[in-house]
Amino acid sequence: MNNEYMPFVSEILDVKKHTDIEYTFRMSYTNETEVKPGQFFEVSIPKYGEAPISVSGIGKGYVELTIRRVGKVTNEIFEHYVGDKLFLRGPYGNGFDVNLYKDKEVVIIAGGTGVSPVRGVIEYFSNHREEIKNLTLIAGFKSPQHILFAEDFKKWEQNMDVIMTLDTNEGDSSYREGLVTNYIKDVTITDYSNVAAIVVGPPVMMRFSVSGLLNEGLKEEDIWISHERKMCCGIGKCGHCKIDDTYVCLDGPVFNYTKGSQLLD
């Protein structure tokens, strides 16, 4: 009998610093075809514990995990460098299926670290622009110092409509200022019967972003969200992510809004 809690060893292939507390770790992983954006891995260090981290990138022989330094486990992870090894288990959960968005007009709204779980979707359609009608990305960060994946944004701007907004642009007029919800009305949609939207970020931001999309004419069934903040053990045993009869780590964290809107805790 296999022990579902047993992790495997993964080598750190690269480390990318975004901010003082947010790094992307590229980890060796040979079954990358089994991973979807929006899924997560448990990252663990003996004696320190483990933390659920969303997949922010998928490539041949690796996965990327963007980690915020916020506690005991993540503090210790930040003491590891290229060539060091961490323990992983996963991938877990229900991710974003890019096939659901093909041949549609796609709108992605992400706030802060919420860009991480949708980065794989953005990257896929940036590289396969012919598979969708149109793609608009609205991303919000606190300030210029909090921007994640800055190099990616420069590339994405060549293949899609990108609206980056900051809570404060600190006088830099090259950035828009304000909440992501302020810019939903600026999205051009030509066919509301053939549109899909993804919203990921803090709960309040997701709630008002979805409301804004609905006000613009989208239907609930055309919107997907992620309850990634609820992730815990990954295999439905600890019960921390259970809402009514739904285990977020098993049935999510990605949900169509028709289901996700009912998961109130």
Rank of each mutant, 00 (worst) to 15 (best):
F87N: 13
K104T: 08
S143L: 05
A197Y: 06
G95N: 07
I223L: 01
G171D: 08
I21V: 14
D152Y: 15
Y48W: 15
V55E: 05
G61L: 09
V118N: 02
E79M: 09
Y247M: 10
F78M: 04
A139K: 00
R176Q: 13
P253S: 01
A197T: 04
S10D: 08
M205Q: 08
C233H: 09
E123W: 12
I12P: 05
Y23A: 01
G71K: 07
D161R: 14
M164A: 03
Y192F: 15
G120E: 06
I45E: 07
G71S: 07
V55Q: 07
L263T: 01
L218D: 00
H128L: 10
A150V: 11
T33G: 06
R68S: 15
L218C: 01
R69Y: 07
T258P: 02
G93R: 01
M160Y: 08
G90M: 09
I163Q: 03
Y257G: 00
K104Y: 01
N169F: 10
G120H: 07
V200T: 12
F40R: 10
M6V: 10
Y62R: 07
E157R: 12
K219S: 13
T24Q: 06
I122W: 02
E170Y: 15
V82L: 09
V63S: 04
V200E: 09
Y124G: 00
M231I: 08
S56A: 13
I21C: 08
S226L: 12
N94M: 08
M205D: 03
I67N: 03
V55R: 04
L166Q: 03
D167Y: 04
G38Y: 15
V118E: 02
